[in-house]
Design a protein around this nucleic acid. Structure first.
Lengths: 339, 339
DNA sequence: CTGAAAGCGCTTACAG
DNA sequence: CTGAAAGCGCTTACAG
């Protein structure tokens, strides 16, 4: 079952088998054929861990996700795994369930496998210093989606891949303005989250570009869930004059708001315009289908893998901050303003 | 950075450091304290791969998932990772995207890491012989959710963890019968899938128990998606006399059907009863909230990890087939029959 | 309680 | 083109 057994059976040295294994041109064609046949016959399977140990390299990358049950992050994970697999790396999975304590544990355990790098979609409020303590400065790190909190640590270099939240919200708002809407709310999300703050900025950018002063009452906060968005739909309709459109924090909120409006006798997509953010699978099949900002999480996963492997290949790279483009996907939830 | 460095710095042998590392009582308290302080000072991180090589054990389990973007499987993966982590194992992730070819590739690559076992949620139509060829007979295997196709292979022992599709559908149907419904359709799914066949059997069991002969016209086939279920809602209403309730293949179908019925002027949850299967997050916040069969995917993931580790500990175990219980979660989508 | 030696399965110079 | 030897970072008998 080891390379030794193959060598003995073929009457060659271990070194020769090793060369065959890695396709070296040094070994004679006949020898190669003999060795390969014997490996097949014995059902030999390569021990990459042993090879890695000797070569002082790693073929694993650790992927730590805050919330795998969210399709956005699950898609991201699938993209990471796909791209790493194509480069001959294997993915070590860890999930933190949004708990910084669990994240610390998971990172510690994964570090013992000396990964070539770490892709981290951080738990809420995990800090730079936490992460640095867990993984040290030797292992390449890419942080996805949300910034680590707390002060930067001098000399601790890592990459960040985020979404262009501001431009996405600006595009969604801009489209509503082009459709004639003038009273546009920003609905949902926690103002304390960096992504919500960024999206609100984009929304305000667009309004100001159109010469409209954003009203504080148009900012409605909710947990970023369908459930709470549904419950808070009335907060939109009690405004006087009521908005004719809402830019929602994300798709979950947008879908919840649509249900809430129906409950209150409104017809989203007919007499009220709504946009989302994320483009989760349900967005396309909502009633009506949801106009939303697509973030292409699977593609982001592939991109994250690329960035990390670049850093692993060039350890002295300064920390990069990549903001991935997003694009507006128009569907039927955004009618022109009534009248 | 290695155990050697720590030993030298402390003036002890590598063996002593190794004993400290694994908490052996053999080593003197003072020595232990000295060594531990030095490890902390140098930022030593254990190399588990090297230890595994020497001990001829593995601390990794491979997890191969057919479709990570489906929240059901993503939750399952999270449960597996959680349980494995608690036992000191790390999860090697692979995703096949429902492609048997990709699954073969992924399994091959993961095998080179000599995992302690494999948890496989197989791609559609991947066969026993495919999988046996990829992983051999030495590595413990647990198959989740759908059976491998093709003839069994003598001497190839593995475990299977599935859902009790039949009992789940039977419970849902039974509840509708208890509410007074007599004309109950089975809506959605492809009859060629084993899960759809099993669920239909449970549905028929319940009808027959109630002395009702299932009508062929009550079986309506659709792709298992919200979109197609929505489009096919009329197939239910053209029946004469029309059913008053539908047991749906899964939640996606049930939610699609609800939308379709609304479109056709019916009020699901008021004048029509609907049940789902899976209990995806959206089920609880639908309008109306959906009565459904809960499969608890995260818990199934933990269970899969348990089963696999048992097999790994007892290699001679005969193949087990565990059918996980499911339970009916009643919500508002199932009113008593009208009149 | 601690140390010297061998070995896990592989690769890498170095000879020939 | 092939072989003998050393070594990756750890653990495991075996002495003492």
């Amino acid at each position: 079952m080891t390379l030794n057994d193959i060598a003995r059976a073929c009457g060659v040295s271990r070194a020769t088998v090793s060369l065959v294994l890695r396709g070296s041109p040094l070994v004679h064609t006949d020898t190669r054929a003999l060795v390969e046949a014997e490996m097949l016959r014995q059902g030999y399977v390569y021990n990459r861990a042993a090879a890695n140990l000797r070569q002082r390299v790693s073929s694993a990358v650790a992927l730590v996700i805050n919330d795998l049950s969210n399709p956005f992050f699950a898609e991201f994970a699938a993209g990471v795994d796909e791209a790493l697999g194509a480069k001959g790396f294997v993915t070590l999975l860890g999930s933190s369930n949004e708990s910084p304590a669990r994240q610390r544990q998971v990172l510690g355990s994964l570090m013992e496998h000396h990964p070539a790098g770490i892709i981290l979609s951080p738990a809420e409020s995990s800090s730079v210093s936490d992460v640095e303590f867990s993984i040290g400065r030797q292992t390449p790190l890419l942080v996805f989606n949300r910034a680590l909190t707390g002060p930067a640590s001098a000399g601790f270099e890592y990459d960040f891949l985020g979404l262009d939240n501001r431009a996405g919200a600006r595009a969604a708002t801009g489209r509503l303005l082009a459709l004639g809407h003038r009273r546009i709310a920003f609905f949902g999300g926690h103002a304390s989250s960096s992504s919500c703050r960024e999206r609100r900025l984009g929304y305000q950018d667009a309004l100001r570009d159109a010469g409209i002063e954003p009203q504080a009452s148009w900012l409605i906060e909710t947990a970023p869930t369908r459930l709470e968005a549904n419950a808070r739909a009335d907060a939109l309709l009690v405004l006087d004059p009521a908005p004719t459109a809402a830019v929602c924090y994300n798709d979950a909120v947008a879908l919840g708001l649509m249900l809430g409006l129906v409950r209150l006798g409104r017809r989203p997509g007919t007499d009220f315009a709504i946009t989302g953010f994320d483009d989760i699978p349900e967005a396309a099949v909502g009633i009506p289908p949801l106009t939303t900002v697509s973030a292409a999480p699977r593609e982001r996963g592939r991109q994250a893998a690329e960035l990390l492997l670049q850093r692993a290949a060039t350890p002295s790279l300064p920390g990069r901050c990549v903001i991935a483009p997003v694009h507006l996907t128009e569907r039927e939830s955004t009618p022109a303003v009534a009248g």
